[in-house]
Write a protein that binds this DNA or RNA. Structure first.
Length: 1135
RNA sequence: GCCGGAGUGGCGGAAUGGUAUACGCGCACGACUCAAAAUCGUGUCUCGCAAGGGAUGAGGGUUCGAGUCCCUCCUCCGGCACCA
């Protein structure tokens, strides 16, 4: 027999398999079920590392196993070939990024082939291939046409030294990943994809997926959905206006919305006039304008508002005034009678002629509000209005179409200055004692919508300075300086809509501009951050929630269905007279630990009651009240001593003992609880009752209670639970709103080496999609790949390429020069695998259907919230467009572990701990490396495994012993090994299916150990193993070590590849052992063993066990005997 | 801080609520050898001479029986992080 020479064996079979097309996958095979196994395709960095082996070679075991189990398996591979490293290398070495990338791919393909993986290379996908990115562009345009893509001024990371935009992942701790220099936030026009439209579905659809919990959780976390309310706080700017509100066609001054606006404006001290316009069912210009003019005097403090036809009247009024007013607001207005739904009878009674010059000279500010679902006013009409007034309309979703709801709050917002806040705790509204705006808040923007709202601001310079300084603050500084800073907007106050009270307004950078509305209400009593801020700026802290806790676990958990006994009570934190210790009680009946507490008798003073309780429970007589510990703490629990549910309302106090004078505590009290003095730092851990914990935190002055409870100081809502108050207060004073942490996906990259965005900019048509027939828009050749300092992509340097004709109007136009984020490329590559060569479609629908969804997707944990989330979104969007048939792309997702260097550190060149797989493969063989990586630990759990150069040798030894074992193969099956073989077949199959490759391998090792023992020792080297047994063993080993098994298989005379054979079946009848050893336990502890036959019944087991433990059972009374067939007998005896 | 995961020999790890430490590495001793390597054999949680006892991060609970289920705490790892 030759020795095991892995090099020649592996080379030989790799060649043969490829020649035979062993792994070519057909889309449909009759009688076979399809199985789509996906691994993340690699970036062609140029060199394969151990991580790649772990990612590709280990799942290959499953792919091979499933094939042997009769599945038609798709195991594809490709390259994620666009991206920065190529461009950086190109800049550095003056190469073409394409050349660099393609040669890397060639090299890596060779390396990947050395793994012995069963990839179907005929389906290879390369994202930088125009044949691929044609469809990336096409899919992007489908989204563009569906309105999922938009351009927006977005804050981007700008590296001051590289003079380019960086992706978030390239910003590490606020500095540039490459050059370590400062990164600044800049506003730039960027292409965005509306992933936030899918936020809800991306969260909700997770429930139905068979994914590990941690992956689902981190996606949920990342999306960060929170439900709450938006509440409007009107501003009092110190100026009183006169509002003239003009109603529309068929309207009247007493319509609910006019009533609402009037009421709200009057609350702020403004004057409101709503003239009744005549002949409202049959209106004429002359009559209506005259009525409006007669209603009042118009001057610079007048705010003129017109709704619908009222807007036309308002414009006419302005035409005739002698002096200007303060402001004009129109909602649902128009200047011509061409409505999109129907004609109106006033069409001919108005002139539809306006003196725009006059109008504009009579008002310094014009606001045009357009309702997004307006049924009458058409886009064309709106456009004409905008053009006419020279003002861009503000698009708002009203309460009802055309702003006809009962309370049109959004209109009100534009009538008066309003700050809208988002909160998840509307129940704490009465405790809002100030407002805070983010420095980026639109109200603060210079010349905000032309409004002079901040004209009365007293400390303009200070505010400006603060805004400037926070803009300059880098992310790093913001993180480092966690202390809250802010500046008050002086002479401006907001009105708390619940209390009607004036509260101060601040700007502070602890409020984020991009989350919620960019403004928050400060509730210092119930929010830690607000509390910190309020303390610093000495703002009032008003408690509006009394904590309410319910004991849910343990012996004092409330008993369901039993009634509660209400009782007023006290809770006393008592400090030692000389030491820094506190009196705690441990209740004997229920393991509860807390402070002294007790009921207050009818008519009894709370302080007196507290002193009485201290005396009764501890015996101490002389106490002094230090302070009251705030509001009542409501607590529901079960009292074992009283044997009933209690609903206690504790008034908490802090006392200090004057001295140690103590009287004897009654026997009854001693039975109930034990008293002890705990050191200050130990109390928090010792006390386990929630009510006592709250009291303790208050005693230590660190309580900001943000839990549930009962409302106080909240007007009509007093006494309600926080839960119901959230709904009730939102209903009355706000609107329900859900916000997300997830932001839209910015896909613009000002980089060369990516997919060109297939859009053309035309001066008259705006951004226009490139025609399908013109796709792909190929990357132009440029001289150098350095980004321009201006933030333009290097594509802009291809001047000729940029100049095109507009696909719509054929006029002069320019190509978009940004490229797409590479996450776009990888958002759909798994779809292309199903039909990689299709020239007419991104993939054929039938082929998609035969392979999608992916059965198992294995990849790195770092992609959980990026690639995996993006591609789920992408797939859902395609689903909505009817391009895919299923709403989720991946049935199962699995995150892979990380392979560390031998020193337990992450492998890196600088640490010198990098394992070169090519070297190890050369020395020990691909089979050894594959198998070692599979053996290192469970593949379906996330962990970190150091590469162990010693352990890898262990696997090599195993394969060498397998090689030698061919010598033991005779003709007749070994009866001694038959049972074990069938057990091995069962276990290995089960373990591979659940990706526990490590235990599958150990099972194979156990079989080989037994085989050697049997052959070498029992049979002294005779050929004991049957040929059939040996071939079964080889088939079990084949998915792990494909080369050596193929060689041994062929050496045994087989012509067909072992990888084309079927997985062995086990014979259930052969799994049973003749004799087994069972455990004999006494009181649950193993004390002896007994040998019984494999099918022994309970009686036999008990008899054998009694004999085995006879001496130990002597003189003991057996109370119970528990018999578990095939396992153990447990005697429960008297101690 | 919040969310998630995990703590078992010297190391990677194994164990449907049922004989804890399978399998592999390492180590020790032995065989083979002039010798070494390779290979093979034996042993290898801990206390104890033994009989026995103890141990799965710590403490408690449920159970005939807990590494596994429940509660409290500690430590480590991952993610998010002023998200209102």
């Amino acid at each position: 027999m030759k020795s095991y020479e892995h090099k020649s064996i592996e080379k030989k079979w790799a060649k043969r398999w490829e020649k035979d097309g062993l792994y070519k996958t057909k889309d449909v095979v009759k009688g076979k079920e399809n199985f789509n196994l996906l691994v993340e395709f690699p970036y062609p960095s140029g060199n394969l590392h151990v991580g790649h082996w772990y990612a590709f070679a280990v799942p290959d075991i499953l792919a091979r196993f499933q094939r042997m189990r009769g599945k038609n398996v798709l195991y594809p591979i490709g390259f994620d070939a666009f991206g920065l490293p190529a461009e950086n290398a190109a800049i550095k070495n003056k190469l073409n990024p394409r050349t660099w990338t393609l040669s890397n791919i060639e090299y890596m393909k060779k390396q990947i082939r050395s793994m012995g993986t069963s990839f179907d290379w005929s389906r290879e996908v390369v994202t930088c291939d125009p044949a691929y990115y044609k469809w990336t562009q096409w899919l992007f345009l489908q989204f563009f046409k569906a309105g999922l893509v938009y351009r927006k001024e977005t804050a981007v990371n700008w590296c001051l030294s590289c003079k380019t935009v960086l992706a978030n992942e390239q910003v590490v701790n606020g500095t540039c990943e490459r050059c370590d220099s400062e990164v600044e936030q800049r506003q730039m026009l960027q292409w965005n994809i509306k992933i936030t439209d899918y936020a809800d579905r991306l969260v909700d659809d997770l429930d139905a997926l068979d994914w590990p919990k941690e992956i689902k959780e981190s996606q949920k976390n990342w999306i960060g959905r929170s439900e709450g309310a938006e509440i409007d706080f009107p501003l009092d700017l110190g100026i009183k206006y006169k509002y003239v509100l003009l109603h529309g066609f068929e309207g009247a001054p007493d319509m609910p919305r006019f009533h609402f606006w009037k009421e709200e404006l009057e609350k702020l001290g403004h004057e409101v006039i709503i003239p009744a316009l005549p002949d409202t069912k049959n209106p004429s210009e002359e009559e209506q304008v005259a009525a409006a003019l007669a209603a009042t005097e118009y001057d610079e403090r007048t705010v003129l508002f017109g709704h619908s036809l009222g807007a036309v009247v308002a414009l006419k009024v302005l035409e005739r005034l002698q002096k200007p007013i303060g402001r004009l607001v129109v909602a649902g207005g128009f200047i011509d009678p061409e409505f999109k739904d129907k004609r109106r009878n006033f069409e001919k009674r108005f002139s539809w002629k306006f003196d725009v010059k006059k109008i504009k000279s009579n008002t310094p500010v014009i606001h045009v509000l357009h309702e997004t679902k307006d049924y009458g006013v058409s886009d064309k009409q709106l456009q004409r209005l905008e053009d006419f007034l020279g003002v861009k309309a503000t698009h708002i979703e009203g309460e009802a179409p055309h702003f006809t709801g009962q309370k049109e709050r959004s209109v009100l917002m534009w009538l008066r200055a309003t700050i809208r806040v988002f909160t998840t705790r509307p129940d704490t509204l009465y405790g809002a004692t100030y407002l805070v705006l983010a420095p980026e808040h639109p109200l603060l923007r210079q010349g905000f919508e032309g409004q002079a709202w901040l004209s009365t601001l007293q400390n303009k310079d200070e505010v400006k300075k603060y805004i400037e300084s926070s803009k300059k603050k880098t992310e790093m500084e913001r993180l480092a300086l966690k202390k809250k800073t802010g500046v008050q907007l002086k002479a401006i106050t907001a009105i708390n809509p619940a209390t009607g009270k004036a509260i101060p307004v601040y700007i502070a950078d602890y409020v984020l501009g991009h989350y919620g509305t960019g403004a928050v209400m400060g509730v210092p009593a119930h929010d830690e951050r607000d509390n910190e801020f309020a303390k610093k700026y000495e703002l009032p802290i008003i408690e509006v929630i009394e904590p309410a806790v319910t004991q849910r676990a343990g012996l004092d958990a409330v008993r369901e269905e039993e009634p509660f006994t209400e009782r007023p009570a006290i809770l006393a934190v008592v400090k030692h007279w000389s030491e820094d210790t506190y009196l705690c009680l441990a209740y004997k009946a229920n393991d509860a630990r807390g402070f002294i507490s007790g009921g207050v008798d009818a008519g009894e003073d709370f302080l007196v009651a507290a002193q009485r309780e201290i005396r009764e429970e501890s015996g101490y007589k002389n106490v002094v009240l230090v302070k009251s510990l705030g509001s009542v703490i409501h607590s529901k629990f079960y009292s074992p001593t009283k044997q009933k549910n209690l609903s206690a309302h504790f008034t908490p106090f802090l006392f200090e003992l004057k001295d140690g004078e103590q009287e004897e505590v009654s026997e009854r009290e001693k039975r109930i609880q034990e008293m002890c003095w705990m050191k200050k730092e130990e109390v928090a851990n010792f006390v386990n009752r929630d009510d006592s914990r709250i009291a303790w935190r208050r005693a230590m002055g660190m309580d900001v209670y943000d839990g549930e409870g009962t409302l106080v100081n909240s007007g009509d809502f007093n006494g309600q639970s926080t839960e119901s108050a959230r709904e009730a207060i939102t209903e009355k004073l706000g609107t329900v709103k859900t916000t997300y942490k997830l932001r839209d996906w910015i896909v613009s990259r000002q980089r060369y080496w990516g997919v060109p965005i297939p859009i053309v900019h035309c001066a008259s048509c705006g951004p226009v999609a490139v025609k399908d027939s013109e796709l792909p828009v190929k990357l132009p050749e440029v001289k150098d790949y350095l980004p321009e300092g201006s933030g333009k992509s290097p594509l802009a340097k291809a001047k000729k390429w940029v100049q095109v004709k507009c696909p719509k109007c054929k006029g002069k136009a320019e190509r978009e020069t940004d490229t797409l984020d590479t996450f776009v490329d990888s958002s759909w590559y798994y779809l292309r695998y199903t039909d990689p060569k299709n020239k007419k479609k991104f993939a054929d629908a039938k082929k998609l259907q035969s392979w999608m969804p992916v059965d198992l997707y294995s990849g790195g944990a770092e992609h959980t919230t990026m690639h995996v989330l993006y591609s789920r979104f992408w797939h859902k969007a395609l689903f909505d467009l009817g391009l895919t048939k299923e709403p989720e792309p991946y049935t199962r997702r699995m995150n892979r572990s990380l392979i560390l260097g031998p020193d337990g550190q992450k492998m890196s060149k600088s640490k010198g701990n990098v394992i070169d797989p090519d070297e190890v493969v050369g020395r020990l063989g691909a089979d050894t490396v594959r198998m070692y990586l599979a053996f290192i630990g469970p593949y379906n759990e996330i962990n970190t495994y150091p590469w162990s150069p010693d352990s890898v040798v262990g696997v090599r030894r195993f394969l060498e012993r397998v090689w030698r074992a061919q010598e033991y193969v005779g003709e007749a099956d070994s009866p001694a090994l038959e049972n074990l073989l069938h057990k091995t077949i069962k276990k290995v199959g089960e373990d591979i299916a659940t990706m526990k490759f490590n235990t599958a391998i150990s099972t194979l090792m156990i079989f080989l150990n037994a085989l050697e023992k049997e052959t070498l020792r029992q049979a002294q080297g005779k050929k004991t193993l049957g040929k059939a047994q040996w071939e079964n063993f080889l088939r079990l080993l084949a998915p792990f070590a494909p080369h050596i098994t193929e060689e041994l298989w062929a050496a045994g005379g087989q012509k067909k590849s072992v990888h084309k054979t079927v997985w062995p079946e086990y014979d259930a009848s052969k799994l049973k052992e003749e004799t087994i050893s069972i455990a004999v336990q006494i009181n649950g502890k193993t004390r002896a063993e007994a040998q019984v036959s494999g099918d022994a019944d309970k009686k036999t087991l008990e008899k054998a066990a009694r004999e085995a433990a006879a001496t130990r059972l002597e003189g003991k009374k057996i109370l119970r005997t528990i018999i578990v067939t095939g396992r153990l007998v447990n005697f429960v005896v008297e101690e």
